[in-house]
Amino acid sequence: MNFKWTRETIRTWLMMALGAALYAFGIEYFILPNLLMEGGVTGITVLLQYAANLPPSITTIVINLPLFVIGWRKLGRESMIYTIGGTLMLSLFLWIWEQLIERGWLVPFKTSQDFILVVLYAGVTLGAGLGLVFRSGGTTGGVDIIARIVHRWRGWSMGQIILAMDIVILGSALLFIPKEKVLYTLVSVFISSRVIDFIQEGAYAAKAFNILCKEPEKLASIITKELERGVTLLPAIGAYSGTNRMMVYCVVSRFEIRKLKSLVRQHDRQAFIVIADVHDVLGEGFRDE
């Protein structure tokens, strides 16, 4: 992968940094002071904070390091570079907010009564942070890496893998925090997911790409290999030229929108792309019913 610091690349990394800062702020300012939870590997780091007083800024790196190595080998360098970057930024900003709170320069929002207000602000903050990270093409590592590897190995839906792991993590939280806090966490997670969708692409779960380009068969092969998404080649006829062509049709999740745009542009800068909103998607890689 030849990495070039173009204006677009710099903007991408700045957006990822802002998202990681917001997400880390939500964890340190809202979640931890009120004994709430979070899903994914971040949820594991929060549990370790409650159980052993281990700072999330450290455990985030420790837990993700072996996943980075496995992901680099199994998923490839190109697909991991932004994931590693997003995770390192998250750990850095967690450390920054920890230091500000320890020194008394930032007073976390802690309440013993109005938890609805806490989960509302936590959900919006976490969702906005993750939405910016996802929109820039990155992730915060952890569960995403595991889900992609298991999906390749066993063919299971990534959504189902992530959901199952979140259930296990949130269930484990019952050993350390009251069940009421876990229920409040579910409200925060729901709000967060809605905000992520809104920031990513206007609250839709997926997008359908219709692409006219040079060598459509080659592009279809690239998409299949890089995104592991099904691709359909549809015959098309230019009304003006009368030329017979093939159109590439592909539906992707919200996490893959930017990646697919990038793949198309790398393949053919002059490609004609029509992106349509998809309200519901059933089938492999999406919902089963």
Rank of each mutant, 00 (worst) to 15 (best):
N34D: 12
Y50N: 07
A147F: 00
R229E: 05
T232E: 12
W13L: 10
S192K: 05
E8D: 11
I116N: 10
D268W: 03
I61C: 06
T42M: 07
G123D: 07
V133H: 01
W105G: 09
R258V: 14
V264D: 01
L90S: 01
Q200P: 02
P235W: 08
V274L: 14
V248T: 10
A239H: 15
I101Y: 11
G285P: 09
M246G: 12
Y184D: 08
E180R: 13
M80N: 00
M246E: 15
S136Q: 08
I273S: 11
D114T: 00
I149P: 01
G86P: 09
L233Q: 03
K214Q: 11
I177C: 02
S262D: 15
E102V: 06
A173Q: 05
A236W: 10
V46E: 10
L54G: 14
I116C: 06
E98G: 09
N53M: 04
G230Q: 01
L36S: 09
Q266N: 15
E217M: 07
G39I: 01
T59P: 04
H267T: 04
S192M: 09
R148Q: 09
L227T: 05
R11T: 01
I61L: 14
F176Q: 08
S112E: 15
F286G: 14
G283N: 09
D144A: 00
A173G: 12
R154Y: 12
E226C: 01
A276G: 15
I44H: 06
L174T: 14
L32N: 10
K4Q: 11
D280I: 02
D114A: 02
V41C: 07
G155R: 02
V251I: 12
T232I: 12
A271T: 10
A206D: 11
G86A: 11
K225R: 11
I101H: 08
I149A: 01
L174C: 13
G159N: 10
K261I: 14
L120P: 04
A21C: 09
L126P: 05
R258C: 14
P55L: 08
P216M: 01
G238E: 12
L18V: 04
S172V: 00
L212S: 08
I222A: 07
D144F: 02
M1Q: 06
I70E: 00
M165G: 08
L18T: 02
I101K: 10
I81K: 11
G285R: 09
E180C: 11
I257Q: 13
D166H: 05
R265H: 15
E284G: 12
A17T: 07
I167S: 12
R11L: 05
R11M: 06
S188F: 13
R7P: 05
W5P: 02
L120T: 09
L126T: 03
K110H: 12
F272V: 09
D268N: 04
